[in-house]
Simulated scan of single mutants.
Amino acid sequence: MKIERLSQDKIRIFLTFDDLSERGIHKDDMWREIPKVHELFSEMMDQAYTELGFDASGPLAVEVFALPAQGMVVIVTRGKMNAHAHDGGHTLEEDDADDEIYEMEVTLEQSDIVMYSFRDFEDVIAVSKQLQSSNLTEDGKLYSYNGKWILALEPALIDSSKHNAVIALLAEYGEATSVTYAMLEEYGKVIMSESAIGQICLHFKF
């Protein structure tokens, strides 16, 4: 579980599928109101407070993005307390009610985009060469984001029998990223908007 602060009132939590399975949670459970998910959320908020000093009191907007090969991204935004809420505006303490610690407005989205980040452009070239020479794919978008290169692939454009081989190569050279596609589109810079792997192989020779 990785937690990072995006702003004073917003954090991002990256959960791998191992994080979920260790707690007996299947990714589809995140769509359901079950005690295990509440326990996981409480654990995430405790860790966010310990690591970042993020106080999760008051209303929270929670966005959950499912990423097919990497895990899940949870974005938590802290809202302002309403003046009339909770007995004249007092923060609801855990002792007051076990079941109502957090006021959550949950948004769930599933993304099929596979994204891996690379520190060095040489790694992007290397993985592109491998993907092309293995006849796996020449597709993809290349972004620059936060000092890293991010390769985004649309699984629908890749033969389903080759998915695992593509993921294995991407994981060998880069690492799964917790950035959502929406954030990439908004804050990242598009370097190659289509056929990124094919273009890289064409322009960069070893």
Results as ranks from 00 to 15, higher is better:
16 T>L: 04
17 F>L: 02
17 F>M: 03
19 D>E: 05
20 L>V: 03
24 G>K: 07
26 H>C: 02
27 K>F: 14
28 D>R: 08
29 D>E: 08
31 W>D: 02
32 R>A: 07
32 R>S: 07
33 E>R: 13
34 I>F: 03
36 K>F: 03
39 E>Y: 06
39 E>P: 00
43 E>R: 12
49 Y>R: 07
52 L>T: 09
52 L>I: 10
54 F>A: 07
54 F>T: 08
61 A>V: 14
61 A>H: 14
62 V>D: 11
64 V>H: 03
64 V>K: 01
69 A>V: 14
70 Q>M: 12
72 M>K: 04
72 M>S: 07
76 V>E: 03
79 G>Q: 15
80 K>P: 05
84 H>W: 09
86 H>D: 03
86 H>R: 05
86 H>L: 02
87 D>W: 07
89 G>R: 00
89 G>T: 01
90 H>S: 03
93 E>P: 00
94 E>F: 11
96 D>H: 11
98 D>S: 14
101 I>E: 15
109 E>N: 15
110 Q>F: 06
110 Q>N: 05
115 M>S: 06
115 M>T: 05
116 Y>S: 02
117 S>A: 13
118 F>N: 00
119 R>D: 13
124 V>I: 15
127 V>T: 04
129 K>E: 10
131 L>I: 01
134 S>G: 04
136 L>V: 02
